[in-house]
Amino acid sequence: MKEIDELDLPGDVYYSSDHEWARKEGETVKIGISDYAQDQLGDIVFIELPDVGTVFERGEEFGTLESVKAVSEVYAPLSGEVVAVNTDLVDAPELVNEAPYENWIIELRPSDEDEYDELLSRDDYLAVLQG
């Protein structure tokens, strides 16, 4: 397991306390899981993705990640409609372990811009991890 100071926590994404990250790209936001989350889960062997067009509320479960350890839900850090899912992960779920910030899981069109500003900065997220 990685020590907290070994975690990759880039500053160009924003985080949720459930260990998802969100990155604004124009009108939409890509969502994935943090390096901390993938390290805790261990090898991810299966991903269940939502259908494009599904609408989620902030905090709602949008899919599951199956690791060798457990079945874990992933939660929408923002409310919005799914405009794309990363189908590369269907055949290669391990990409999330290998590069968690390149391998986004879903892309949302947010329904409430203010929610993005309520996410955690890198430093705030680090403080959450340090407890």
């Binding site: 261990g42 090898d43 062997v45 060798v68 350890k69 391990e94 372990n97």
Partner: peptide, 10 residues
């Protein structure tokens, strides 16, 4: 140990 950095799959 549950797994090492190698990962349980490998």
């Amino acid at each position: 140990p549950l797994w090492y950095p190698t990962g349980a799959k490998q």
